[in-house]
Every structure is written in structure tokens, then in C-alpha cells.
Computed example of a mutant assay.
Amino acid sequence: MLLFRAFARNYNLQDQSNTIELREGVSRIFAQDEDILEAQQQAINDNPEREFYNLNIDAGAMWARRITDKMVEKEQQAS
């Protein structure tokens, strides 16, 4: 599974150790989620007809998924 993530900071920019510390911390946090994210994606792939219930906290991810789905559909229609 390929996960994309990013972070930014705008303080103490001359101290590169802050960037390294943040990058390593963010990587550890996201690594904890990988097993669950992979299981969720597998469930989506295995059950395309199933309606999934989303919480308000999922709004951003669902918005991104709808945009991606529309882009894929448009690309498939063009081919």
C-alpha cells in the first residue's frame, strides 16, 4: 500500500533537526495506522457493492475519494 503524507513548518527554519524530528515522528504515527488502512482498503475492494457509513470526521477523505473516482471515470470514458 502506498501512503502519501506531508507536513510543513514555519518556525525555527534554520534548525534542520526540527525537520528530522518531525519527519520521524510523523512516520512513526502513520506506520501505526498502516495495518488498519490496508484492511479497510481490502474490505472496500472485496465488497464494492457494500454501502459504507461515514462519520463527519470522514468528510475530507470522502471528498477526496469522490474527486478521484470522477477523475478515473472521466479518464476511462476518454479511452
Rank of each mutant, 00 (worst) to 15 (best):
L13M: 09
D46C: 02
A31V: 08
A61N: 04
Q14M: 01
L3C: 09
E75S: 15
P48A: 02
N47M: 02
R5N: 14
G25L: 03
Q16F: 03
N12Y: 06
E38P: 02
E49G: 05
L3H: 07
P48R: 02
R28S: 12
M1H: 06
R5Y: 13
A59Q: 00
N45W: 06
Q14R: 15
P48S: 04
A64K: 14
A31P: 00
N54W: 09
S79H: 09
L13G: 06
E34R: 11
F30L: 12
F30G: 02
A43R: 04
Q41A: 10
R50G: 02
S79K: 14
M1Q: 03
L3V: 14
A43I: 00
N47Q: 06
L2A: 13
A6E: 08
S79Y: 08
A8P: 06
R5H: 15
M1V: 06
D33G: 13
I44Y: 13
N45I: 15
I44A: 11
N54F: 05
E34Q: 10
K70T: 01
Y53D: 08
D58L: 06
D35K: 07
R9K: 14
W63P: 00
I20W: 01
T68D: 10
V72Y: 11
L22G: 00
R5F: 09
A78K: 08
